[in-house]
């Protein structure tokens, strides 16, 4: 594992309130790193330290080192616009700029060089394609970005961030404002992008972290509780607090309306059976299925969310079996 971002002994304060305590961790290159932890534990703060967006918060101060490509980004004397260029940010709520779709993408490249018209057209097309938006907007590039759906706006923001050619993509709960289909769209794009980019994603959604992450950082009350490869952290956390957090987000008491045991069934049959079982239920009712096919653990929830159902729980119940709870 090659490290891309080296966070060394970082402390962050808002006034007297310490939001991050002695954080030291390496973020691997060209992988997806998920930052998980309960609300208020400092996830967004850590992200804001990486691209120095925290400078814009009144009364905030940061100490320590964050080394990216041999440069300490926390060093006060470096050009902060260079730091930010290296890192695209995908916010929680899509924030298109008050201009056309085209100009939203062109805004960044225009700041950092003056590409000609033809070159710019190519840039816009390229990044809209990468973010999977091109087909939907290619005929109305000049129309206002605010007319796009929320999901489309988020992909626009992704394209806009990529257009300044960063090496790193930072995402702060990028799908929490989106519907399941749009969320899945974004997740798919991120998975594709990790071959070329280092991705850091803050998420409240453990299933999302499981689906996306190669590496996991667990924060709790501003402290680094645990970090490591995703499968180790999720399957066998070293720290009790991590185990509690991961289980805690699962153990919601639910009234299960129907159950289906799909053990021994392979993909995509388990998916088909699950769909059939859901079909017989009314809207809002809850179905629990048990699967033992490892690919089903990721594919079934993804397919269900794509169909507009809500996946509430994905939980390992023993060495081989998983429980998936879906709300129609």
């Amino acid at each position: 594992m090659k490290s891309h971002i080296s966070i060394q002994d970082v402390n962050a304060f808002y006034g007297d309130h310490q939001a991050l305590r002695n954080i030291t961790v390496e973020i691997p290159q060209k992988q997806v790193t998920a930052i998980i932890g309960p609300s208020g534990c400092g996830k967004s703060t850590l992200l804001k330290c990486l691209n120095r967006l925290i400078d814009l918060t009144d009364g905030a101060s940061v100490s320590g080192k964050i080394i990216v490509d041999g440069i300490n980004v926390l060093n006060g004397s470096i050009d902060v616009t260079d730091v930010r260029r290296k890192m695209g940010l995908l916010p929680q709520k899509p924030n298109p700029l008050p201009m056309s779709i085209y100009d939203n993408i062109a805004y960044g490249p225009k700041l950092h060089g003056k590409p000609g018209k033809k070159e710019m057209d190519e840039i816009v097309e390229k990044y809209l394609k990468i973010s999977g938006l091109w087909e939907e907007v290619k005929d109305r590039l000049k129309s206002p970005a605010n007319k796009l759906s929320i999901g489309q706006q988020q992909r626009l923001c992704l394209a806009r961030g990529l257009a300044v050619e960063p090496d790193i993509i930072l995402c702060d709960e990028p799908t929490s404002a989106l519907d399941p289909v749009s969320s899945q769209h974004i997740e798919q794009q991120l998975l594709k992008l990790k071959t070329n980019y280092t991705i850091v994603i803050v998420t409240h959604n453990i299933h999302q972290a499981m689906r996306l992450a190669d590496y996991v950082i667990h924060l709790y009350l501003g402290e680094l509780v645990e970090h490591g490869h995703a499968n180790e952290v999720f399957e066998n956390p070293k720290e009790e607090r991590t185990r509690a957090y991961i289980n805690g987000t699962f153990s919601i008491d639910l009234k299960i309306d129907s159950e289906a045991n799909l053990k021994g069934k392979m993909c995509p049959f388990n998916f088909v059976y699950a769909k059939q079982a859901l079909h017989n239920l009314e809207d809002g009712k809850i179905l629990k299925i048990i699967v033992d096919d490892p690919t089903a653990v990721t594919e079934v929830p993804r397919g269900m969310e794509a169909d507009g159902h809500k996946v509430l729980i994905v939980k390992e119940i023993n060495k081989t079996d998983w429980e998936i709870v879906i709300q129609k």
Binding site: L53, D82, R84, P91, N95, L97, Y107, G108, C157, V164
Partner: peptide, 15 residues
């Protein structure tokens, strides 16, 4: 002007 708009611009490396 919503702060998120300025933030978007800053994160793209704007002054």
């Amino acid at each position: 002007v919503p702060y998120e708009l300025k933030e978007a611009s800053y994160t793209l490396g704007a002054t």
